[in-house]
Design a protein around this nucleic acid. Structure first.
Length: 261
DNA sequence: ATGGTTGGAAACCAA
């Protein structure tokens, strides 16, 4: 079972790039973030033609997440529980009906900048809701992968130049603490399971030659329940995708699980 | 010192 997560930064603006990558990587499941379109505008036929079932939780202009799967999807949940007034499309979850099923979520955590504003408050509140929901899901004691753009730099080694992020919402102590709290519930970071080296980044800004100078950060993760982590086989961070034509500012992260084991 | 979206210029959002 190959599961990928990728913040595509507009699926329609980048459709040829995304299609080229997904055909080459051939994941069983793909979690997209920042599709930046409503459900009706998602180019579902292009992915269905490649053998994917498609479920989206879209929004006009901003945010929006999607789940694509070569296996049937069921038990689809759109939106993160815990705040009925939250209208931002940042969470979709489904059961992947493979021979050995796995529950997968595509997550787009709020950015939270600038700090000291209601945006940062919203980020922390969203993190707390995610903790609460993850706690519920973990009681199922089943294979589970919470994948996406977490918009947090967990450790200094997850940035080329940590000092440059000192005042940024992504590297605030409260953001990092919230991410650790999620981990300590019992979700393993695939990056650690795979022992990827420091300097394995998933995002480089479009500006100021960040890619050319490798001024990246690691903010896209595949978090695994014990039942999934036990079957972890490999992780690949597709750095080469940052050099494609019309690249996203994020690159895909791909994990392989041996669910038959 | 960019790029996407909206809306038909410049503002907002991204991280």
């Amino acid at each position: 079972m190959r599961i990928a997560t990728w913040n595509v930064n507009s699926v329609n603006a980048r459709l040829p790039t995304v299609l080229e990558w997904i055909q080459a990587a051939n994941p069983d499941v793909a979690c997209f973030q920042e599709i930046k379109c409503v459900d009706e505008k998602f180019p579902r036929e292009a992915f269905e033609d490649l053998g994917y079932n498609v479920e989206t939780h879209g929004q006009k202009s901003y945010n929006g997440v999607a789940l694509l799967s070569k296996f049937p999807l069921s038990d689809v949940r759109r939106g993160l529980p815990g705040d009925d007034a939250d209208e931002q499309a940042r969470y979709i979850e489904a059961l992947i009906e493979a021979p050995r099923p796995i529950r997968v979520a595509s997550i787009y955590l709020p950015n939270g900048n600038p700090i000291g504003t209601e945006k940062f408050t919203y980020k922390l509140a969203w993190f707390e809701r995610l903790q609460n929901h993850a706690r519920e899901l973990l009681t199922l004691e089943e294979p589970l992968a919470l994948c996406g753009d977490y918009n947090v730099i967990p450790e200094a080694e997850d940035a080329k130049n940590p000092a440059a992020w000192a005042e940024d919402a992504l590297f605030q102590p409260q953001s990092r603490e919230a991410f650790r709290a999620l981990k300590w519930l019992g979700l393993a970071d695939s990056h650690e399971l795979g022992r990827e080296p420091p300097g394995t980044f998933t995002f480089w800004d479009y500006q100021a030659g960040a890619w050319r100078r490798d001024h990246g950060i690691r903010i896209d993760f595949a978090m695994l329940s014990p039942q999934a982590a036990d079957r972890f086989r490999a992780i690949e961070t597709h750095r080469d995708a940052r050099d494609m034509d019309k690249p996203s500012d994020h690159v895909p992260v791909v994990v392989d699980l041996d669910l038959e084991a």
